[in-house]
């Protein structure tokens, strides 16, 4: 799906360059990080049982290894841009996304965000096999944070997009994995999010469905949604992002226009 999405975004890029569908200049910040730090405390030996913890605590042998996944990170992302995050494994990319998605809180500093975030979650996480497609739409929608009224309003659109048709009242265990994945994508993106987070390769169904996903993501962008893209691939970021940040060991090495950041990353990273 990522490939499909890239293509979609590239198309959008071309169109913008040719003057068609001109975007308003990004102005207002929708994400702002001020001197953010995230500290992980990891026990030296992985203690997973209460008994072990009690014994060690008595012997005063619970020691921690502290390290900063992010340290002193400040950045802004503006409305409507495609913002890339590059860096090696363990540079803090995922932690950055989790902060923005409000999944984690910073140990220090401030994270500010305006608008609703749609994470492309592992499609189908939160589904229940015994429930029907219909019931799962309501359950999964509520998990993502839609109200019942919103789901009702979007229901037909979700069913149509997922192409469930007559299978809408069949328990999920009897549906193909492709159908489940389509349903997941359809629910996650039913209401256009203000900020879309894409951080891993997703494969949704067949080629034709990938095309549908692509055009949906493209339409988010046309409608002014902000897209955050995390990638190992420098080429990808260079080709579709407006701006990018390069993270190294939890610190910002560079933040600038995507092409320049990627160039630095490739030369020095």
């Amino acid at each position: 799906m990522r490939d499909a999405m890239i293509k979609g975004l590239e198309n959008a890029e071309e169109r913008r360059e040719t003057g068609e569908n001109r975007q308003p200049q990004p102005a207002a910040a929708v994400i702002r990080l001020e001197d953010v730090a995230v500290r992980y405390r990891v026990a030296h030996e992985q203690i997973r049982t209460l008994k072990e913890y009690a014994i060690r605590a008595l012997k005063r042998r619970v020691t921690y290894n502290e390290f900063y996944a992010l340290d002193g990170v400040s950045l802004e992302v503006y409305a409507g841009e495609v913002f890339g995050v590059v860096g090696r494994n363990g540079a803090g990319k995922s932690t950055l996304l989790r902060l923005i998605a409000q999944v984690m809180r910073p140990t220090r500093g401030r994270v500010w965000r305006k608008g609703r975030v749609a994470p492309l979650l592992e499609l189908g996480a939160g589904f229940h096999d015994e429930l029907t497609g219909r019931e799962n739409i309501f359950l999964n929608g509520a998990l993502i944070g839609y109200t019942r009224a919103e789901i009702l309003r979007l229901f037909d659109e979700i069913v149509e997009f997922a192409e469930l048709g007559n299978f809408i009242d069949t328990p999920l265990r009897n549906l193909s994995s492709g159908m489940t994945a389509r349903l997941g994508f359809a629910v996650a993106t039913a209401a256009h999010p203000d900020i879309l987070i894409v951080d891993e390769v997703l494969s949704v169904g067949d080629e034709r469905f990938k095309q549908k996903c692509t055009s949906r993501i493209e339409s988010f962008r046309r409608n002014g949604a902000t897209i955050l893209l995390v990638s190992h691939s420098a080429d990808l970021v260079k080709s579709i992002c407006n701006r990018a940040v390069w993270l190294e060991r939890g610190k910002v090495r560079a933040i600038d226009r995507a092409a320049e950041v990627v160039q630095m990353y490739e030369q020095q990273g």
Binding site: L99, G109, R110, W112, R113, K114, R116, E150, L154, N223
Partner: peptide, 16 residues
């Protein structure tokens, strides 16, 4: 056809 969420944009501020 855009079909934006009708709820007002949510502001999240970790310091709040």
């Amino acid at each position: 056809m855009p079909f934006y969420m009708q709820s007002s944009p949510e502001i999240y501020d970790s310091s709040d």
